[in-house]
């Protein structure tokens, strides 16, 4: 099991962010939300590790520091 990485871990983070925004460009709000949901599932599968996924869920809920 590995710990969830919460320090900077993406090389060229501006490129990634621009690509993320570009992927949403032109979509309706509903389609954008659906895209994000699919993205979460794709990334979750890539991570795979159950414990890390639980940590990620807690982090996104902004609960991990409590």
């Amino acid at each position: 099991m590995s710990d969830l990485i919460l320090t900077p871990n993406i090389d060229g983070v501006d490129d990634f962010y621009a690509e993320l925004i570009a992927t949403h460009e032109g979509l309706s709000d509903a389609d954008s939300q659906a895209l994000n949901a699919r993205l979460v599932l794709v990334m979750a599968n890539h991570i795979g590790d159950r414990a890390t996924l639980s940590q990620a869920l807690a982090a996104a809920a902004l609960k991990s520091e409590e």
Partner: peptide, 15 residues
């Protein structure tokens, strides 16, 4: 911005 308050990883994303 919300994540950057809690986690270091999001700070480089703040532009």
């Amino acid at each position: 911005l919300a994540l950057s308050e809690h986690y270091e990883f999001a700070r480089p994303m703040v532009n």
